[in-house]
Design a protein around this nucleic acid. Structure first.
Length: 747
DNA sequence: CCTACTACGCTTTTT
DNA sequence: GCGTAGTAGG
């Protein structure tokens, strides 16, 4: 009995077909991950392929990690030398080695969307582009699309004809590229684009990677865009051992440049390719699967296929209708609580919605009922202000080449360096064709700088001090040093208590992430470096932080849910105008409606045993009440597969309204999910061994700067204690015990 | 140069 | 409803 016997005939065929191009059309829940992992195992065990000759591309780091684990599990050893990674991290690895060949610095930084937006803003200012007319967002989007289609500024400009507004965008694109290069920075799209340029222009590099990756596998192929397609095509061109897996019914990233033709035309792109369809679904109950099939059948532009299952019929799809979004959230919370009382665990449940904004009502309800939950997405952890600030310090200490980072922190915390001064430094830097940070090194050369020179000098001295420290300290300690010495923590503590607590919680989490990174490096026998950390941080996706082993309800957008499965799924906000979105309902693009429908299909097929669809007739959207009717997608499910709520609930509203107003704002900041930290598991007090404090709540302590005070509270944070002290005449402060250096006063 | 206030615009979805 | 950009006053 071999491990391959557990596969069905089509799956086995896909595993055994190792030479030449292969397209696996894998319906939802048809076991494609199983096929991919077994295929890798087969290549290594039966075909004797070296693990380092295999490249597997997934969409998220989480998927990559899981795939590696599963391969590890099957073959035992050797899986660590397979490249299993996302498009982006694979490209970074290649670029770190060779990008100097095309005129960039191998030590480049990666700009996230926030940085991009700041840069675009600068560009618009420099070019006198009115951002009221040309929105940063749309310029960014236009540039991103151009890059996805592999249009350089030159080619973009040629393509636009005499269009005046597009000319503006072309101008911005030129300048944007210039600035990126000056900052030694690449944006997300560049990671792909520059890699393709590199492979296209450097035959020896291309040859090296073609030989290295003799067997290439790509997951979620329906969501690849043009530049990703080129990347794959180039690498596979020599040996043609390319296996792609996808499902055109699950293509949901058109807005991001995904080109569905990549999958529809696979056979045309790659000669002598083989196509295998996986149509048996192992995940969902028959009722759920039939319902999903019925919905997706309304799409015209798709490859006809019919998913079937041997699974039992199961419960009918539960459809519930409510008056308001509050009622909807209350129902879901209660429904979950009821089932947990009956033996289900919290991580059996997922709540899926169309827009991130919808998470709030559920979050409030869950907090009120102490249901542990985790929100995936929303504002990315690494996009939070305090995190970006600290990372900007680390970037500056590391290289000082990233002007954006330097400018971000030059006056954070406040040092009396204002916009006017920054402008003068900037002008002088441009004048002399040097970097911003470099210009700070010679303040006497900056005209009209006046009294600000001293402040700038002391900033430079501060950074220099950290640079010196970074030689001896671990990254964790360096970071703590930065938080303390810059006065950042004091600044945070000056904010409103609840805001400050949330920020400290986030900073604490960053510190533990850094520590985790350092430990991982130690395990791998590599020295932890600032650069390595910053890179890892730049490429994480929200979903990467999800951990199935933790017991919490997860909340996320339908987009984030792709590739996941749950015993029970609540698809909430099933309303025309919300899902399908307002834009789609009012617009007249049938293709957009089809993409929404695919999204619905993806959502429904996440459920294994039970699927609940809910809607509200009234809900607050952007501060005003909107009325919606039930989503057309619900109507597309045959009646015999549905059962409606046993008495749809009309609840008294008065007690709920009160809860939404007064503290909701502060509460939101406080409870806002920290990626990775959003779970509100009832606090556990686990004290780590080897670490203890010589004071406790109620003791009098003394602090170097703040004098004496009374310890109010001690909370075990990630790797440290968070101590609240009421200082005499100064007030209540929160701080980390490890660098607050509090001393107990013995009376 | 900093802070506090007002007005506006925004929400689809994200590696 | 919320965050941010822009403005006025200190």
């Amino acid at each position: 009995m071999s491990i391959y016997d557990s596969l069905n005939q089509e799956q086995r065929e896909a595993v055994h077909h190792t030479e030449g191009p292969l397209l696996i059309l894998a319906g939802a829940g048809s076991g494609k991950t199983r096929v991919l992992t077994h295929r890798i195992a087969y290549l290594m065990e039966e075909q004797g392929v070296n693990p380092w000759n295999i490249l597997a591309i997934t969409f998220t780091n989480k998927a990559a990690g899981e795939m590696r684990d599963r391969v590890d599990h099957i073959v035992g050893m050797g899986s660590e030398s397979i490249w299993v990674s996302t498009f982006h991290s694979a490209c970074v690895r290649i670029l770190r080695r060779y990008i100097d060949r095309i005129g960039y610095d191998n030590n480049f930084t990666i700009y996230d969307m926030d940085d991009q937006k700041t840069l675009i803003k600068d560009v618009c200012k420099a070019l006198h582009i009115d951002t009221k007319i040309y929105k940063e967002r749309s310029i960014m989007h236009a540039i991103s699309s151009a890059k996805n289609e592999m249009l350089s500024p030159e080619r973009y400009e040629k393509s636009i004809g005499g269009d005046y507004s597009k000319q503006k965008i072309a101008d911005a694109y030129w300048e944007y590229e210039k600035q990126l290069k000056a900052n030694h920075a690449l944006d997300f799209d560049d990671l792909l684009l520059k890699t393709v340029q590199l492979l296209e222009t450097q035959p020896d590099v291309l040859d090296y990677y073609q030989d290295r990756f003799r067997y290439i596998m790509v997951d979620e192929y329906q969501d690849t865009n043009t530049v990703q397609f080129q990347f794959v095509r180039l690498l596979a061109d020599k040996y043609k051992n390319l296996c792609v897996v996808g499902d055109d019914d699950q293509s949901i990233y058109k807005f991001r440049g995904a080109n569905i033709k990549n999958i529809l035309n696979f056979e045309a792109h790659f000669a002598d390719s083989k196509v295998i369809k996986l149509e048996q679904n192992y995940r969902s109950s028959a009722h759920i699967l039939k319902g999903a099939n019925a919905v997706i059948r309304h799409n015209v532009g798709r490859k006809e296929k019919s998913l079937w299952t041997e699974n039992p019929e199961g419960e009918k799809i539960n459809v519930q209708s409510f008056d308001t979004g509050y009622d909807e959230a209350e129902f879901v919370a209660e429904d979950i609580e009821n089932q947990v009382r009956n033996g289900h665990s919290y991580n059996d449940f997922a709540i899926l919605y169309r827009t991130n904004a919808q998470s709030r009502l559920f979050e409030e309800r869950f907090v009120a009922e102490s249901i542990p939950y985790k929100i995936v997405g929303g504002i990315n952890f690494y996009a939070r202000k305090e995190i970006k600030d600290i990372l900007a310090y680390l970037k500056t200490v590391d290289s000082g080449q990233d002007d954006l980072a330097v400018r971000r922190i030059i006056n954070v915390p406040k040092r009396g360096i204002g916009l006017a001064t920054i402008g003068k430094v900037q002008d002088s830097a441009i004048e002399r064709e040097i970097g911003f940070y470099e210009a700070l090194g010679g303040t006497d050369l900056i005209p009209g700088i006046g009294r600000s020179a001293k402040k700038l000098d002391s900033f430079v001295a501060l950074i220099a001090y950290f640079k010196e420290q970074s030689k001896d300290l671990s990254i964790s300690d360096l970071t703590k040093e930065i938080i303390e010495k810059t006065g950042y923590l004091d600044e945070v503590n000056k904010e409103e208590q609840e805001v400050a607590e949330a920020r400290i919680e986030n900073i604490d989490e960053l510190l533990s992430k850094i520590a985790t990174y350092e430990e991982a490096c130690m395990d791998a026998d590599e020295p932890p470096t600032l650069r390595g950390l910053l890179e890892e941080v730049a490429l994480v996706a929200d979903i990467d932080g999800l951990d199935e082993n933790q017991d919490y309800v997860v909340l996320m957008t339908l987009h984030s849910a792709k590739g996941l499965e749950f015993p029970q799924v609540y698809l909430v906000g099933m309303e025309d105008g919300l899902f399908p979105s307002f834009m789609t309902v009012t617009g007249d693009d049938p293709e957009e409606m089809e993409e929404e429908r695919r999204l619905c299909y993806v959502g429904m097929t996440r459920a294994r045993e039970r699927l609940v669809l809910t809607c509200a007739t009234r809900r607050m959207v952007r501060g005003e009440i909107q009325h919606h009717r039930q989503s057309r997608f619900v109507g597309e499910i045959p009646e015999e597969l549905k059962e409606s709520g046993k008495g749809s609930r009309t609840m008294q509203k008065f007690n709920k309204v009160a809860e939404t107003n007064p503290r909701s704002r502060a509460r939101r900041v406080f409870h806002t999910p920290a990626y990775g930290g959003g779970q509100k598991v009832p606090q556990q007090f686990v004290v780590k061994s080897g670490q203890s404090l010589d004071y406790q709540v109620g003791d009098r302590v003394s602090h170097g700067k703040l004098g004496e005070g009374l310890v109010m509270e001690i909370i075990q944070g990630g790797r440290d204690y968070e101590v609240t002290v009421d200082f005499d005449g100064v007030g209540v402060k929160k701080m980390f015990s490890s660098f607050a250096k509090l001393v107990k006063i013995v009376l």
